[in-house]
Design a binder for these strands. Structure first.
Lengths: 211, 211
DNA sequence: GTCTATATGCTGATAGAC
DNA sequence: GTCTATCAGCATATAGAC
């Protein structure tokens, strides 16, 4: 949970990341992969260690417990998606319209979600299966992300860019659900990411845009 | 996997369902509940038995193994949804349009999915976590259901009811994803089912309908 | 930092009484 | 049909060498 190691700069070195940091990241990636495929109860430290190229007890040097490792995976995935979408929105030109912001958020969400799909599917598949204590930090992160989307929709309503008879909360959940689920079925070898982004934007635009 | 007991009519009785059949169903419902909350690896026979009101070894009278029980849960959920939507479509008036059929299928899917939501969430959350052997029967059922939806979209294309630039496969996956995910967040105490059905139909209609 | 060895607890499954 | 008793296997976590 807390960082037991970090960039401490033990000596003057040219490496930007200390070895311990990189090992920790490798364990985290391995845990995301195992967690997404085997689920919370099925995530064995032995499997995580094998994916990361070390032995199970070594994990305890970086994480206090199995639950702490899993909690970190859930948190990191949610945190990074929110950070990415937030950055993209912040970089948009000043006068960008409310609906264009939603479309940009959709593209940013899909691209980043599918880029770190192990974290995404781990989070999506296990959100309801992980014990509450383990989910606390990631749940807070997801709430903040959800709040961000609500703001986008409310700005669109204020700008009169949405259909007046629309229930923005239901629509938001449906759209986020459709996107989150994409990590489960989207096959890069079959459809390009650009096609998926466009299909999602088209569905949303036609569905909630005034016309 | 195979039915070890069933409606055998051991003697003339007024009860429509033999006790063994009802107990089996109770175990199945309990397993769906536990599977949806704890996941594949976390589903303990002890917990299933407790939910069903009996001891763990009694489960072996009805199911050959833990995997056989879980496979049956996954299969039954998918099978019943497909049967329900299929029945609803079959009962539609002769001249029902292709787009109205899709809207009817959406309503039928959502209503049944949320009615047996333990089976639905069990299936959705564990589809990618359950071993392939255990998933075989339910995967075949889901493929058949997916095929049914593809037919609905192809009929709509043939009737020129869809936007010409639409990728029907991507749209189908996005819509089914949005619906399946509803079992995860929809709260009956907060929004009515009618509202959810309408919101989904509106999103889909505006999104893929010609206008 | 990472390893080997090990203590401890829990789970699926079977045997056999009732 | 359902129970109690029990076996065998496996996973987390710790101890301690290197």
């Amino acid at each position: 949970m807390t960082e037991q190691t970090g960039a401490r700069g033990r000596s003057v070195t040219t490496r930007p990341l200390p070895k311990s940091h990189r090992t920790r990241e490798r364990i985290l990636d391995a845990a995301a992969r195992v967690l997404s495929r085997k689920g919370y109860a099925g995530t064995r430290l032995q499997d995580v260690a094998a994916e990361a190229g070390l032995q199970a007890p070594a994990i305890y040097y970086y994480f206090g417990s199995r639950d702490a490792l899993i909690a970190e995976v859930m948190y990191v995935g949610a945190h990074r998606v929110r950070g990415h979408v937030s950055d993209v929105l912040a970089a948009l030109p000043e006068g960008t319209g409310a609906m264009d912001k939603i479309l940009a958020a959709i593209e940013a969400h899909l691209r980043y979600e599918l880029l770190i799909s192990d974290y995404t599917t781990a989070s999506v598949r296990n959100a309801g299966q992980v014990p509450v204590e383990v989910r606390e930090r990631s749940a807070a992160e997801e709430a903040a992300y959800s709040h961000m989307w609500r703001d986008l929709f409310e700005a669109a309503i204020a700008a009169d860019a949405l259909r007046p008879d629309l229930d923005p909360n239901l629509a938001r959940f449906l759209i986020l659900g459709a996107m989150n689920w994409a990590a489960e079925w989207w096959d890069p070898g079959h459809r390009t990411l650009d096609d998926l982004v466009k299909a999602t934007q088209d569905l949303v635009l036609g569905g909630i845009g005034r016309h």
